[in-house]
Simulated assay, not measured.
Amino acid sequence: MVSDAPTRYRSADEDSARWEDFPFRPGDIVISTRSKSGTTWMQMICALLVLRTPELPAPLTELSPWLDWLVEPQERVYARLAAQRHRRFIKTHTPLDGVPIDPRVHYVVVARHPLDAAVSLHHQSANLNRARLAELTGQPATPEPESPRPSVEQALVRWIDANPDPRAELDSLPGFMWHLRDAWARRHQPNVHLVHYDDLRADLTGQMRHLAERLDLEPPGPDLVEAATFDRMRDRADRLAPDAAGVLKERSAFFRSGRSGQGDELLDAAARAHYRSRVAALAPPDLLAWLHRAEA
């Protein structure tokens, strides 16, 4: 999957082509994740490691813009990043094959168990103000469905079964594995850093220290690690939730649980076996062993 020519990813509210003309600086950090896989968490970790204070000087969305989100005009995002004098850390949900790879730049990819991310996606979907999102992106408003919303268990089974083109639906199971498979193929490159969501949960101090070393930054003190904990971030949802444009119904609901293993718990034995069969066809065994460590 690793290619010199970037793949273009485009949806109603994202377009990876916005990366094409972006002027990188040496030391820039690109945070590339699938949705609900630890994006905001990693943005906060990078903010703390770069700025060296638990009291951020601005909301996280201003410090770490989502470059390819169509809600904000490209020229405004570029201008804000150009004005930053600290080391920059930029958000994207685009896989690395859709972002220019610059040897002077660091790329951090966070991986989460796909079933846990799918559960979070289901709850996040109910928290989105879709009328506001359509207004900001110039899309026609989609009426709310009249039929009852499926349960999280039903939604999870449907998500496992769905088989769209991953380039068209990156938050599908094929899309998740596409993103991670590409990053896995690049993992030995010195400026590509894979981080597992469960490792952040199990040893936040150790993971922040390791990442600081890889990014050539000073190790964090206890105050910085404390500021990156899930509970502390949830307490500060007004400044940390990715909602500068007002597309979330409730900011505190963005930090819903963050727990690992919840997706697997919702499935019966047959559904778990079906999931394992699906992912075995989408990714190599060594990636799956690394990704699914919580099942061991």
Rank of each mutant, 00 (worst) to 15 (best):
D102A: 11
R132C: 03
A117N: 02
T61Y: 13
D116I: 04
Q74V: 14
W41M: 02
A111S: 09
S125T: 15
E75D: 15
P73C: 04
S125I: 00
H123K: 07
Q124H: 15
V71T: 15
W69G: 10
A111N: 05
S120P: 08
L56W: 09
Y107Q: 08
S37Y: 06
W66E: 09
E135C: 03
R112M: 10
E72G: 00
P103I: 05
R80D: 05
A82V: 02
I101W: 14
A47G: 05
K91V: 10
S32V: 02
V109M: 08
F89G: 01
V50M: 06
K91C: 10
V50W: 11
A118K: 07
A79K: 06
T53R: 14
T92M: 04
P59Q: 12
D68N: 11
L63M: 11
A117E: 02
R80V: 01
S35R: 12
D102F: 06
K91D: 04
T61V: 10
P54N: 10
V99K: 11
D116K: 09
V109G: 04
R52A: 12
R132M: 09
L49G: 00
R88Y: 06
Y78H: 13
A131W: 00
E135L: 13
A118T: 04
Y107L: 04
Y78C: 01
Q43F: 01
L96V: 10
H86E: 13
V109W: 05
Q74P: 00
A117W: 03
K36W: 00
E72I: 13
L81R: 06
S64N: 14
S35M: 13
P54C: 04
A47C: 03
